[in-house]
Design a protein around this nucleic acid. Structure first.
Length: 319
DNA sequence: CAAACGTGGGC
DNA sequence: TGCCCAAGTTT
């Protein structure tokens, strides 16, 4: 290392110490963080099915859809059944979308099931049935955003991409910016930092992405981080600052009880279990407030999650 | 860019 | 009990 790559700051005066710490560590392995974090990962990584070589790019992609806003423990059983039933994108694409919604079970955010089905169809039509390798082509698939495109390219194909999920953002917020939590929405500064911290070597970059994510999931957790188990605790800006509590606007929380979302969930739960079309009256029983109930059902229909039939009957979408 | 979008487990 | 949080994307 003869030169020190520029490490962007997170743009606040409070981050001077963090920037200095990272810049100083540059002399070692690029950041001083790569070795400790990837070594820790090599020893402590969970043996998750989508990390096994047999999972393939499709397995990785399915897992990424399911893991969006959803804990690993709840994904595991659904993932196994899904891959057993639809081992390739073509297998899913050949099914009615409603079957994807049904198999999604209670994972939540069922539009993901619909989008995964659409993505499988797009893969079949545009990419000959193989999950594309290029970031731009991944990003063009339904339900694939910035994070998922980078994750599939990195985890499935070993490419060098900044993978910025909630875990990584929290790790960087603490280790580098010295803050307890990252901003509510991903910022340009965070993207810049993630790119700057990315190891040059492709293989190492891929492991780094998975390792920082795992560190955030297992050690540097939101509620009660276990800093005594952290491989970079000694270099952590937040630790060095005395673990200051979060400042600024409260992190946005979502309400659920009494919302349309809850009603949609109840309606769809009935339709998932039904083998034959469901009469309006059965759906009416899940929620007593008629205006909200109708609005929720309309929403499900316009989202393509529910198909209205003649005679006021409904079912999961067949095409 | 804020808001919508499910569900369940932990503390 | 009730709030917080979980590998985001879309509009």
């Amino acid at each position: 290392m003869t030169s020190t790559p520029a490490i962007p700051t997170l743009m606040t005066a409070a981050d001077d110490t963090a920037s200095a710490a990272v810049s100083a560590a540059e002399a070692a392995d690029g950041t001083g963080l790569h070795g400790p974090v990837t070594d820790w990962f090599a020893e402590h990584a969970r043996d998750l099915p989508w990390r096994r070589p047999a999972a393939g790019a499709w397995g990785v992609m399915v897992s990424e859809f399911m893991l969006q806003q959803t804990p690993v423990s709840r994904v595991l059983p659904v993932y196994e059944q899904w891959l057993a039933r639809w081992p390739r994108p073509a297998d899913l694409a050949a099914e009615a979308p409603g079957e994807a919604v049904r198999a999604w079970g209670r994972l939540g955010y069922p539009r993901r099931a619909l989008r995964l089905h659409s993505a499988a169809s797009a893969i079949q039509e545009r990419h000959g049935g193989d999950v594309p390798r290029e970031h731009a082509q991944l990003l063009a698939l339904p339900g694939v955003g910035e994070y998922t495109a980078a994750a599939v390219a990195s985890f499935a194909y070993g490419q060098r991409h900044a993978v910025l999920d909630t875990n990584v953002r929290r790790v960087f917020a603490r280790a580098v910016a010295g803050r307890q939590y990252p901003p509510n929405a991903t910022t340009a500064a965070e993207r810049k930092l993630a790119r700057a911290l990315l190891p040059e070597d492709e293989g190492l970059a891929s492991r780094w992405a998975a390792a920082t994510m795992e560190l955030g999931a297992l050690v540097c957790t939101a509620r009660s981080p276990e800093c005594h188990r952290c491989p970079i605790a000694a270099q952590c800006a937040w630790q060095q600052a005395g673990s200051p509590a979060h400042e600024g606007p409260p992190r946005r929380t979502q309400t659920y009880a009494g919302t349309d979302r809850q009603v949609r969930g109840k309606l769809l739960a009935v339709l998932r279990e039904a083998v034959t079309p469901v009469p309006q009256g059965v759906l009416d029983a899940v929620w007593d407030e008629p205006v909200q109930r109708a609005r929720a059902l309309d929403g499900l229909v316009s989202d393509g999650l529910v198909e209205p039939l003649t005679g006021g009957r409904y079912r999961l979408p067949h095409a």
